[in-house]
Amino acid sequence: MSFPNMSSIRLSLREHLDSDANDYYNLLSDESAVRYYGRNTIDSLSEAKSEISALHTKYLMSESIKWAVILDAKSVYIGSVGIKDFTNQHHRGTLSCIFSPRYWHFGYASEALKLVIVYAFETLKLNRIQAYVDPINVRAMSLFKKLGFSCEAILHEYEFERGRFIDIAILGLTKNK
């Protein structure tokens, strides 16, 4: 099964490669990058390599697709976007994205997610995509709203992160809206 590569004016989205391990480690070991990503930082390059291998396996098993986001002008890894839980009877999936803080505020997340949204609706034939966002993450809330998502609910004290319970906003977008 061939991995679905995509591109825009400034970005290429492709499968994570073993050669991305250092960049992937740098991204996921950066506390400011993972602060709202719903996970802890990683501790080693070997953990990054294991995760990249797991991404490939999850793709082959149709559990998720996670693209490496490459800034074409510099041929540099700047982040990752993905969609998971898309093989279900309900025709929906959940988006995720994480970018290196040095590439925030340039519109790269929006550009990459637009490609993933089109892929989700046109290729995966989903009817709905959603994102789970910490509502205090104003940049992410704004990003998804600019992409057409609406905030459908706030799940109070839904996740336990960094020693405390946090709220999570569910943002949704359907194919026909």
Rank of each mutant, 00 (worst) to 15 (best):
S7D: 13
S7T: 11
L13V: 03
L17Q: 05
D20W: 02
D20V: 04
A21Q: 06
D23V: 02
D23I: 01
Y24I: 08
Y25W: 12
N26M: 14
L28W: 08
L28M: 11
D30E: 15
Y36M: 14
R39V: 14
T41A: 15
S44E: 10
S46G: 04
E47K: 15
A54W: 02
H56P: 01
T57K: 06
K58I: 03
Y59C: 05
L60Q: 13
S62E: 14
S62C: 09
S64R: 09
K66V: 03
W67R: 05
I70Q: 04
I70E: 07
D72Q: 15
A73Y: 05
A73W: 03
A73S: 13
A73Q: 13
A73H: 06
V76A: 13
Y77P: 00
I78Q: 04
S80G: 03
S80M: 12
I83N: 02
K84L: 03
K84R: 11
D85M: 05
D85R: 11
D85K: 09
F86Q: 06
T87E: 15
N88Q: 15
H90C: 10
H90F: 15
H91L: 12
R92Y: 11
R92W: 08
S96Y: 03
C97P: 00
F99Q: 11
F99T: 02
Y108M: 09
Y108N: 05
E111F: 03
E111N: 07
L115G: 01
L115N: 05
V118P: 01
E122N: 06
T123G: 01
L126E: 08
R128M: 06
I129E: 09
Q130E: 15
D134Q: 08
I136C: 11
V138L: 14
S142H: 13
F144A: 13
F144V: 10
K146E: 11
L147W: 06
L147Q: 14
F149E: 13
S150F: 10
E152L: 07
L155N: 11
H156A: 15
E157N: 14
E157V: 03
Y158V: 02
Y158S: 09
R162D: 14
G163Y: 10
R164H: 09
R164Y: 07
F165D: 15
I166H: 12
D167P: 01
A169L: 09
I170E: 10
L173A: 05
T174I: 10
